[in-house]
């Protein structure tokens, strides 16, 4: 049985996860992409109140499609967005806010891997584009903050049950599946170049 992990995620919880493991997440997951990172760091600097708790949070790089049914929001499609866009912001975000997990796709660069190791956070890869599968793991939408940033950029507070499958792609010990793949790709590049008649 794949592991299940409940939010908020403590540093010890995060450090117990190993790269390559498949896990599912239960509890509150917060969406946040480019604008949320920029705003949160700006608010902190100016001492302004941030409407959600990022400590121990599972922060999901996601800009969902939401639909209002009566008074309630429903997640229609909610897959991950490209995490590398947040490469320059994430190390600072992890240091300042101490989330327990970042959920996204495509992986993140070395400074984020280092920050995850230092502060006890993991990167969980969800299959890009598998947005209906993701929405299935979202039981209800508890609320939305910073809605003025637009539907994709707002913070959506998602109540999740068995959200996944997620692959631990960067753990809190400095290991990264993406980095491992890159080493192999570098090696394979020689064969590909030979196939194309390139030196």
């Amino acid at each position: 049985m794949p592991k299940r992990i409940k939010t908020p995620i403590s540093e010890a919880d995060a450090r117990a996860l190993k790269v390559g493991e498949t896990i599912y997440v239960d509890g509150i997951v917060l969406t946040g992409r480019d604008e949320v990172h920029i705003h949160a760091l700006e608010y902190l600097e100016k001492g302004k109140q941030i409407p959600v708790e990022f400590k121990g949070a599972a922060l999901f790089h996601c800009g969902p499609i939401m639909k209002k049914v009566g008074e309630k929001w429903v997640a229609v499609a909610a897959g991950p967005t490209t995490s590398s866009r947040m490469n320059s912001l994430e190390p600072g975000f992890i240091e300042k806010f101490r989330p327990g997990a970042i959920i996204g796709k495509g992986g993140m660069s070395q400074p984020t891997v280092d920050a995850m190791k230092e502060f006890g956070c993991v990167y969980l890869a969800f299959t890009g584009g598998a947005a209906v599968l993701a929405a299935k793991g979202i039981k209800s939408v508890e609320g939305v903050e910073w809605f003025e940033l637009g539907m994709p950029e707002a913070i959506w507070i998602l109540n999740c049950d068995n959200f996944g499958p997620l692959t631990v792609a960067i753990d809190a010990h400095g290991n990264s599946l993406f980095a491992d793949v890159n080493v192999k790709v570098k090696e394979n590049e020689k064969k590909a170049r030979a196939r194309l008649g390139l030196s």
Binding site: G20, I65, V76, A77, A131, A135
Partner: peptide
């Protein structure tokens, strides 16, 4: 195992999108 799981998620997602008449990806 890892690539198999990624493609299973994609193929499952294709089927679920058709069944629910829902966009397959949130990025339309």
């Amino acid at each position: 195992e890892v690539p198999k799981m990624q493609l299973k998620a994609i193929v499952d997602n294709i089927d679920m999108a058709i069944k629910g008449n829902t966009p397959m990806c949130q990025d339309t």
